[in-house]
Structure formats: C-alpha cells, structure tokens
C-alpha cells in the first residue's frame, strides 16, 4: 500500500490540476493549476527512481557500489523544473500583458478573435 502511495498522489495531482484548469475563472489561477499538473510529473518521476534504504547518488564520500537512488530520473526532474519555470514565466508575462490591454483575466471573457 505504501509502495502504491506516490503513484496515487501523482494521479491525484494530475486530476485536480486538470479539474482546476477546466473550471478556472482567472488566468493566474489557471497557470497555478498547470503547475499542479506539472508537480504530478515530479512525483511520478521521483517515485520511479526511488530505492528503499538508498542514499543520494553522490559518490564523493561513499565507495562506488553503495546503494543509491536512480540519478537519471533526478536529471529528468531537473530538466522538467527548468522547462516548467520557463513556461510559467512566459505564461505569466502573457497574462500580465493581457490584463493591461483588457482589464480582465477571466478565460470566459477572453477569447481569440471576435466571436
């Protein structure tokens, strides 16, 4: 059961993030929900690389061969964080510009092109 927990947390975060995006009434809130979806990928990847009782994958003081968690997924998470930061910054900048021009951030009032 404990072994299953991180996977359930990942699915839960993914689900509530999507629910938040679908029902959001404010773009800043929506961007936050996107980050929640992204957090689910962090949890998933870290769960993939976890080894019970193992330490960090740094062998400076430990001899090679000491049990360690998988460093590959940690590299993936790091890349993911960098990408997430770039995209969130870009989205917030777009939202800021939009607020300047339209005075609202409600997705229901903001739609591309005149309808």
């Amino acid at each position: 059961m404990i072994a299953l927990l991180p996977w359930l947390v990942a699915v839960w975060l993914f689900g509530i993030g999507l629910y938040g995006i679908v029902t959001s009434r404010n773009f800043v809130h929506l961007i936050g929900c996107l980050s929640v979806v992204q957090a689910s990928t962090y949890v998933l990847l870290l769960a993939v690389g976890y080894r019970g009782g193992a330490g960090a994958p740094i062998f400076y003081t430990h001899p090679p061969g000491t049990p360690a968690v998988d460093p590959v997924v940690q590299a993936l998470v790091l890349t993911d964080i960098v990408i997430g930061a770039a995209v969130t910054a870009l989205l917030l900048a777009l939202a800021l510009q939009l607020h300047k021009r339209r005075g609202t951030l409600d997705p229901d009032e903001l739609r591309p092109l005149h309808r």
Binding site: L18, I21, L34, S40, L76, I83, L90, L91, L94, L98
Partner: peptide
C-alpha cells in the same frame, strides 16, 4: 495574446503527458 495563452497551456499539458 489570448491565442498564445490557449496554445501554451494546451501544448504544455501535452508535454507533461509525454513526460509522464
């Protein structure tokens, strides 16, 4: 701006699906 927001959010979700 509005279209770029939609584009970015939907495609970023796609990236997260891929990463998962």
């Amino acid at each position: 701006l509005e279209a770029a927001l939609n584009f970015t959010v939907v495609n970023t979700l796609g990236s997260y699906l891929m990463l998962a």
